[in-house]
Write a protein that binds this DNA or RNA. Structure first.
Length: 580
RNA sequence: GCGCCCGUAGCUCAAUCGGAUAGAGCAUCGGCCUUCUAAGCCGAGGGUUGCAGGUUCGAUUCCUGCCGGGCGCGCCA
């Protein structure tokens, strides 16, 4: 049950019956204030304007046609022509019971599932993953999970950077280390960042090394066996590093989702040839370029996309085009999502435009750049180490767990060592992820240890805590939440508010899936946890004097909360625990 | 120079297609633990939504111009 959609359909019907012409939207939303009921329909105002009639008169006609006998206890016309709908407690209760009986919490399952390609994470394998990779990885993963939950067929694509020019110097350096130290083990490759720095220094300071590096790029791309073996060794180590991070982060990406840049090597000449055949590409200053009038400046000067360099080499625009073609032709995508930094906005718009022009992607396919901002430090500057270097993601996560562990030790010394480790891990990682996911994707955000780990307000620990309190009630009651029975009775206002919030899980997910905005789910879960805490304070469950009917009803409500919190957090890739 | 994004309470952030009196948290102040985990709950104060116009029944939201900040713009990715 999606209440918003249900009421929208009812109001749309009433609008038609009241003589409103086609094309008028019911505009049903959650009410902005409690006195305005649970939902409000705003569609009468624009409709009345178009019909040149008094909006309150029209609203009255629409209300007369609204068939919500068992659903609404009161339907009011307010202000200039808003329709306020107050739902009955009984209807809310029956819908809660229906959701509880469904292992999917009555969430929507798309009748016509789409094939959605989600392109996210995409680390550069030349280096270690750093904080700059966090947003793409966790935002993309959350959206992939939500779409999957709603029934879409999600194909994750980890477009790892394994083919840049840097690999020349990396394999040259690796080659020297292997011969110089006889049997270099993977151990020394483990610090990829240090290895990269060493290679870079040699490249900058040693002309001979630089020349050999450049030659190795050409040999590598030409299929030279020796260079490819070195390259493969390096890639294996780097991929293993990324996968360790994914496990630590509780991100659903695995080996099978990797389709790196090099996978498109053979397609690159074909892409350029096809663009030439269609006269989309022209030679300019020695390079193969596409001029796009679509992105011309005021003087009509078009923007430029280079697809092949003067020396014959290809660029990332070329492999992005090849990837689009693959996703259209082979993966049969209906929707392709790019979880990529906002700074790449122009690049992606250009690539999308070229792909459409060349017919690499059908018109029916939706191409969406899910852009996100930069992670800033407490001073509002891009997040760096004290000396100005990039912060390794692995170190950031370790610090989060360590900080969480210190807090757990202090707040709850009664936990066993095993429990403490588990709580520290789930809370620390959850805090980092939630701090990011809860901010609007499109803007930059401030990273602040104290705020995210304060365990107060809109944070992961607060949500996890709400879950543990509910679990604690089940333990105290000695019941198995799977086997609860009885009916729901919503007598207290905090119970009604909680029930309504619980039933809004679906419409929240619809919005998150459509707009690819995880922070909407975070806001929802925070409000749910907050409503749960209020309910918990106002409505005793196990205390003396609570009648059995209320007790059974409230336990059911608790179970609905627990399942929704757990599911919602799981969609964000955040784990819960029974006690903390 | 051109283009894109942003500017909301002291701070960090919300505001669902243009809807009613712009909401939370932190911080500040005041209450609530012999009773289901106080990592909590209840309450108070705090706003010319950068500025000036425009569109309209209605603008944080759309348009124009300024001011301020970030980012991008031919052979890296």
């Amino acid at each position: 049950m999606n209440i918003k959609k249900y009421l929208s359909d009812q109001v749309a019907l009433a609008l038609t019956l009241a003589g409103v012409p086609e094309g008028s939207e019911p505009l049903v939303t959650q009410s902005t204030r409690a006195e305005f009921g649970h939902y409000q329909a705003n569609g009468v105002l624009p409709a009345a304007k178009r019909m040149q009639v008094n909006p309150r008169d029209l609203a009255s006609k629409v209300v007369d046609q609204l068939k919500l006998e068992t659903v609404a206890e009161k339907i009011e016309i307010a202000g200039p022509g808003f329709i306020n709908i107050h739902l009955t407690s009984d209807w809310l209760a029956r819908n809660c019971e229906a959701a509880l009986a469904d292992d999917h919490l009555n969430a929507n399952r798309n009748a016509e599932p789409e094939i959605v390609v989600a392109d996210y994470s995409a680390p550069n394998l030349a280096k270690e993953m750093h904080v700059g990779h966090l947003r793409s990885t966790i935002i993309g993963d959350a959206i992939a999970r939500v779409l999957e939950f709603q029934g879409d067929h999600v194909i994750r694509q980890n477009h790892m950077g394994d083919w840049g020019t840097q690999f020349g110097m990396l394999i040259a350096h690796l080659e020297d280390r292997l011969t110089a130290e006889n049997s270099l083990t993977e151990v020394e490759l483990e610090d990829l960042e240090a290895f990269y720095r060493e290679a870079k220094i040699r490249f900058d300071e040693d002309a001979g090394f630089a020349d050999r590096s450049r030659a190795y790029v050409v040999k590598l791309q030409g299929g030279d066996a020796h260079c490819n073996a070195l390259w493969q060794k390096f890639i294996d180590v780097s991929v293993a590093h990324s996968e360790a991070i994914y496990r630590k982060l509780n991100v659903s990406l695995t080996h099978q989702h990797i389709r790196p840049e090099s996978a498109y090597n053979d397609d690159l000449p074909k892409v350029v040839a096809e663009l030439k055949r269609q006269l989309i590409v022209v030679q300019d200053q020695g390079a193969q370029v596409v001029f796009l009038e679509e992105f011309a400046d005021k003087d009509g000067k078009p923007s430029v996309v280079i697809v092949q360099k003067t020396d014959g080499g290809y660029l990332y625009a070329t492999s992005d085009l090849a990837a689009l073609k693959y996703r259209n032709d082979e993966l049969q995508a209906d929707r392709i999502l790019y979880f990529v930094d906002a700074r790449q906005s122009l690049h992606l718009q250009q690539v999308f435009t070229v792909a459409r022009k060349a017919g690499f992607v059908s018109d029916s396919v939706s191409l969406e750049h899910c852009a996100f901002g930069t992670m800033m430090d407490a001073d509002g500057k891009p997040f760096k180490t004290r000396v100005g270097g990039t912060v390794k993601l692995a170190e950031l996560l370790d610090e989060a767990v360590e900080r969480a562990r210190r807090l757990v030790e202090q707040k709850n010394p009664e936990l066993t060592a095993v429990e403490r480790d588990e709580v520290a891990r789930k809370v620390g990682i959850g805090a980092v992820k939630y701090a990011d996911l809860s901010k609007n994707r499109t803007s930059d955000y401030m990273f602040n240890w104290n705020t995210m780990l304060s365990f107060e307000g809109n944070t992961a620990p607060y949500l996890q805590y709400a879950y543990t309190r509910v679990q604690s009630i089940f333990r105290k009651a000695g019941v198995d939440p799977q086997n609860l029975s009885g009916e729901l009775h919503l007598s207290e206002s905090s119970e009604r508010a909680l029930a309504l919030k619980l039933l809004q899980f679906n419409e929240t997910l619809d919005l998150v899936a459509r707009e690819c905005l995880p922070h909407l789910l975070c806001t929802y879960l925070y409000e749910l946890a907050s409503d749960t805490m209020s309910f918990y304070e106002a409505c005793p469950i196990l205390k003396d004097g609570v009648d059995p009917v209320s007790k059974a009803s409230r336990l059911l409500l608790c179970q609905f909360v627990a399942r929704t919190l757990k599911e919602g957090l799981d969609l964000l890739g955040i784990e819960v625990m029974d006690r903390m």
